[in-house]
Design a protein around this nucleic acid. Structure first.
Lengths: 164, 164
DNA sequence: TGTTTGTATTTCATATATGAAATATATGGA
DNA sequence: TCCATATATTTCATATATGAAATACAAACA
């Protein structure tokens, strides 16, 4: 059985005790929490041999997914879902490791450019097979139609959460 | 437009640069991360007037959803998705606030029982209207059939993640 | 020009989370 | 009984994340 069963059981008790408690959104929220934890832990374990964390990986991949391999801290904060203070720390760590370069912007000197270094690119090429294998495994049990449907519904859910 | 659009755009670039990179699981993983952040932040904001955090709320609700309002730290760790060391800290904090009581187990003296106190129950009754309103809002844009389908697919995804 | 207001980033104090070791107890044989 | 091994929890050092203040620059405008 899934590790989620006891949680679901507890939700049932809660609904009995609080008739106004809306089961459906509560289930979804708890599923998201469980999923996030699994994804986070699995990514950290996979990346351990390269000495980087899941949040650091996310920063690298956001840069990798950008034309020119360069973003500002504020763009990274938005993209990676981290607070800007946290981006500073993660960028410091990645710069120390030589994976990212920090330069001042010419046009707006308040801005900072964070770019993937040659070493950063090389590391991405190195861990990519392990990451791809991890991602494949994570949806191995699902049909393409199911993942597509899940993507659609998650986007709708996210849009709703962004309303207020 | 959704805050997710730039992330999706970056995934497209990544797929172009790494042909083996599987888009579908990557999208799902990133959606889960964004969703988790939103849910976490919204819950913290809602709970602020009561001086408790989202993880503390989760502990209270796990106890509330249990017959007898009592769980061990290890059960709570599993249920709430926290490491046991973290449960100790959260339980300390909730005990300090008088919301939870810690007692030693009679049958197995290695075990500790964490129970909702009268004050803990009262606080749940107090914040419940705000929490219900938050949960209702979070799925307000979705039809019941959609949330049910989303629940089904998320469970399938979670089961898959639990395989290894 | 000088002033005000706004934006980008960092710093710092504090809060939160984790892994590994330490402590205490239970359980199952020899 | 004694010992080895396993389980439950806590402690502690360290890693990670946050909010609020500080810094630096930009943009708008009198």
């Amino acid at each position: 059985m899934s590790s989620f069963a006891p949680t679901e059981q507890r939700l049932a008790v809660t609904c009995r005790r609080q008739p106004a408690f809306p089961r459906e959104p509560a289930v979804l929220v708890r599923l998201v929490k469980h999923l996030h934890k699994r994804v986070h832990d699995a990514a950290n374990a996979t990346l351990k041999p390269w000495g980087i964390s899941h949040p650091e990986y996310n920063i690298l991949m956001m840069l990798y997914g950008t034309e020119g391999y360069t973003l500002n801290p504020s763009q990274l904060a938005e993209a990676a879902g981290e607070k800007s203070a946290n981006i500073t720390r993660l960028a410091d760590s990645l710069c120390d490791k030589g994976l990212v370069e920090r330069t001042a912007s010419d046009t707006d000197r308040r801005k900072v450019s964070l770019s993937l270094s040659r070493e950063g690119l090389a590391m991405i090429d190195e861990f990519m097979p392990s990451i791809c294998a991890l991602l494949e495994r994570q949806t191995a049990g699902m049909k393409p139609a199911e993942t597509a449907q899940l993507e659609r519904l998650l986007k709708k859910f996210l849009n709703q959460l962004e309303q207020d």
